[in-house]
Design a protein around this nucleic acid. Structure first.
Lengths: 154, 154
DNA sequence: ACGCTGGGTCCGGATATCGGACTCAGGTAC
DNA sequence: GTACCTGAGTCCGATATCCGGACCCAGCGT
């Protein structure tokens, strides 16, 4: 079966990219992973317009990736902050894969700007392709794609 | 050091998302991985407008992820097809991570639509977070992020 | 009473997207 | 030779989105 006979929309990549297929969404998620939680902190750091940030955060909340949570610094009234939900945190593999790609192909002469470390052992963390039998496929191309029940023929 | 003191643009995720932070780019790459190579086949399968497809393909070629290659079916004049370069193929980890995310969080009741298999052993392939000491971090959150030489303070 | 601050909304111009019509070149059919 | 088909685009006008900037609003401190 040729892949172009299957419905492009009934594909997990298509569904996932519906959520995160946007520059700002990815950068907002990155900052949320890094502990930047407040509207104006995000706005300052990313240089995104307030308008768009409002919309992106609302979309992320609606999609269940982010939770809007009240907090109160003493001597201030209540404010909001944005924190990743477990579903949002599951995107870490995607962000790490993007980061690995940028490190390898797009870094300047100074090399990679950041390193993700395993908190327990200090070693660098990367996204790898691994098969369920335990083979690491990094940088090889030994894969085939087969349709399953959720696929739809056009 | 707080992460929001570092330049958001000097980040491998920001650089990578400059290339692939677009719905159509990701879907075009997916189809190229799956062997859909010709302009009109991509257009039909994705339902993208010709205009936008032309531009996305040109951007991908300019970025070195895709090569535009002449070919000739017998009895036709020369045509073009688009094939991934090695740099483009390195995005497989990103696409697999997106697919895993979609399979886990966005699949319908029929389950996942596709499965990527290791050609040598037939087992399913997934993107995992793995540290250089060999620990698999899947679904844990035991990471810290540290700035390196390529980071820029704002 | 007044201003400051976090977290927005509103607005107008610039950009991008979409679907559809038009183009162009080489090959086949007559 | 002429008409037509096909793959691969370009052009166009209407809509949608993005961006920067101005404006708003609710409490708290003074």
């Amino acid at each position: 079966m040729r892949m172009d006979e299957l419905d492009s929309g009934a594909c997990s990549i298509a569904r996932a990219v519906e959520l995160v297929g946007d520059r700002w969404v990815v950068l907002v998620l990155r900052d949320l992973f890094n502990g930047v939680r407040r509207f104006d902190a995000l706005r300052d750091h990313l240089g995104i317009s307030r308008d768009v940030l409002t919309k992106r955060l609302a979309d992320l909340v609606a999609a269940g990736l982010v939770e809007r949570r009240g907090y109160r610094d003493e001597g201030s009234r209540e404010r909001h902050e944005y924190v990743l939900t477990p579903a949002g945190r599951d995107l870490r593999t995607v962000l790490t894969a993007l980061m690995d790609y940028g490190d390898t192909h797009l870094a300047g002469p100074e090399g990679a700007p950041m390193s993700v470390r395993h908190r327990d052992c200090g070693a660098e963390v990367h996204a790898h392709l691994v098969c369920d039998a335990g083979h690491d496929l990094q940088s090889q191309d030994r894969t085939t794609v087969v349709p399953l029940a959720g696929a739809r023929v056009r």
